[in-house]
Design a protein around this nucleic acid. Structure first.
Lengths: 165, 165
DNA sequence: TCAAGATTGATGCAGCTGCATCAAATGGGG
DNA sequence: CCCCATTTGATGCAGCTGCATCAATCTTGA
């Protein structure tokens, strides 16, 4: 029960952990310095703004963002507190609800993307050619695809970009 | 002030965030299921066990692990509470102290490496050839090196492996 | 020598995460 | 039709993180 990873694999693992934290930290710091909330807020606002009518069930948001249920619930709380989204009751399923992005939410999402995209360019885009970026994506995809052979365990805060241009 | 990252760079960024969280989560879960503490503990124990006499100044540990000062301080608290390390006063600098790994600490580090290395193999090693692992490391290194042009800001929980084989 | 500044480490507070659990509503089988 | 399992969402609690700050000690320079 004690397989030994090659030193190459171990090195890749360490790089993956270190580099991701560093880069994420840099991007988050840039956003914070620009006066913006955490990336998770952006992710949620983006998903909401993309939804057909600007609203989603919390469950949908949860699945899109790959974060646990309680995390979604509280993130929505904060967005609502800040007037970036609002809760609407769901008439066809009284357990559920809809979360709708507000105008302020849409605006914030757009303003954040401006800073966010600049950060991506600064910390990723400018360091890699497009070809290398593709290669990196491919290698990472091979790790990610079936990492959990389970039923999608809680994972993480991530982002989706809008072409935005 | 609004540079646009290429779609390739953006895709790579997203993969980096998503895959890292998924893989880290998988590894942490495996360790937890085996009854072990978080990876950060392992990292600290490894650094201590590697130190010439099994002891380090908290400041050294902090620099090795790339985590903020207060985080180091509290991590040491927990290790000491669990009998995995002990604090010794530093005679030459009364502000400071030494943290020394205990036998229990050394043992735990070794037992954790067994589970940890198996997880690395399971979630990384088995998915990539050695050549691909090297390529991945290289691409990641290009992102990491100068991410912070500042003075090493607080970064993250990461690990160092011992060949251990 | 002594005061100002730097270094080392701890800690109070607020916010976020994970875990477990709860309540309400739905849906399906007998 | 009713009971029970499932789905949906909220929440109390503990632990961890980041931030700001503090106290103690060391170092430097006038």
């Amino acid at each position: 029960m004690k397989r030994k990873p090659s030193t190459e694999a171990t090195a890749a693992w360490i790089r993956l952990m270190r580099v991701q934290s560093r880069v994420l930290d840099c991007v988050e710091q840039d956003l914070k310095r620009a006066g913006f909330p955490p990336l998770a807020w952006y992710d949620a606002l983006l998903e909401l703004s993309r939804a057909p009518s600007g609203e989603l069930r919390p469950v949908e948001l949860e699945r899109q963002m790959l974060i646990p249920q309680y995390s979604t619930s509280r993130l929505i709380d904060r967005l609502v507190d800040e007037g970036l989204a609002s809760r609407r009751e769901c008439k066809i399923d009284k357990r559920g609800q809809f979360v709708e992005i507000t105008e302020a939410g849409r605006e914030l999402q757009k303003r954040m993307w401006s800073a966010y995209s600049a950060a991506i360019e600064k910390y990723v885009g400018s360091k890699l050619s497009d070809a290398d970026a593709v290669k990196l994506s491919d290698l990472l995809d091979r790790l990610g695809c079936s990492c959990g052979e389970m039923k999608l365990p809680p994972v993480a805060n991530v982002n989706e970009s809008t072409p935005s241009r």
